[in-house]
Design a binder for these strands. Sequence first.
DNA 1: GACGGACCTATCGGCGCGATATATCGTGCG
DNA 2: CGCACGATATATCGCGCCGATAGGTCCGTC
Lengths: 181, 181
Amino acid sequence: MELSKTAYVILGMLGLGKSTGYDIKALVDVSTRFFWAASYGQIYPELKRLEALGFIAAVQEPEDGRRRKAYRLTDEGRRALRDWLNSSDELHTELRHEGVLKFFFADALELDEQLALVRRIRAHHEAVARQLREIQAVKEGEDADDRFPGLTLAWGIEYQERLAEWCAVTERQLREELARA
Amino acid sequence: MELSKTAYVILGMLGLGKSTGYDIKALVDVSTRFFWAASYGQIYPELKRLEALGFIAAVQEPEDGRRRKAYRLTDEGRRALRDWLNSSDELHTELRHEGVLKFFFADALELDEQLALVRRIRAHHEAVARQLREIQAVKEGEDADDRFPGLTLAWGIEYQERLAEWCAVTERQLREELARA
DNA sequence: GACGGACCTATCGGCGCGATATATCGTGCG
DNA sequence: CGCACGATATATCGCGCCGATAGGTCCGTC
């Protein structure tokens, strides 16, 4: 893999019309963050690297004041982005979920504590779902050229709600056991 | 947070009857890996740290041969584990999903390429689901004292299958669009 | 005219991943 | 009987990334 995944985040964001590192980070924080985070500590060095490689180019900015460095995709950069999107390389996926981790070890708990744990996990997913729905509400007004960012957001909401739903089912079972006891 | 999350993985695994770093790593790789990975580079230093803190204690091994260091939970360690399980601190969750990331940027693709992408994502989740079902089949024989590890595994399988299912739905929509064009 | 907040670039410590080195023991095969 | 190979076990190291923060400029507004 010549480029890091985060490099493709940058290429993709430039493709969506963003131009500065700050701008990219701001969009990441309300979109890809939920399935691919990126920090300034990656973005700025990576911008330089991508420029050196010729995948992006600095745009001439009217030097009227505030220093900022705007970039645009080069043809080569656009090609690299599409090649990655079309590549059949193994997809990198990883999950860190403290709630599931606790669930895994929950035999060490009493039944009522197990129930409380699952409730906390559900509350977490419901909170994230709410947060995503707020983002969706804000985007509502904007007329988007692009369709997939919105579809991805809808996916994220459904994803969180599914997880919450699974918690609800599990809670019901535990509650029944508690009642029988 | 006094202890790292990975420290709790170790405490939890000791609670499930594992005793050496190697043993813990082996179980992690077929269980928590899918929602909380851990490497030797964390496990061994963390074992020392937990011993120094008094949460675990080295077990006397018959020095008959092979050097190995077996540990057991102390009462304090067991308490720390339960406190963590019952704690209402914010649950750490994070996701890295290259497939969803590509989907987010898929406006840069043609319709047929978009369809191929979603198919690849589905194939990925189906492969992971198969892998988990194999693990489940192996565990089938063993009579387990503990119930939650098995429940977590079942959750993982359902999780992967849901994601695959979502892909299938999306594929159908894209195929219809392709047909209309 | 100054103050806060948005904009923009940059860096740094620390942690965790993946790969690998090293060594010993158990087992099965010719 | 011997030895090759896989399993057991501990340990280390570079590299990438996260989160926090520093440092600077511009703009609106009171």
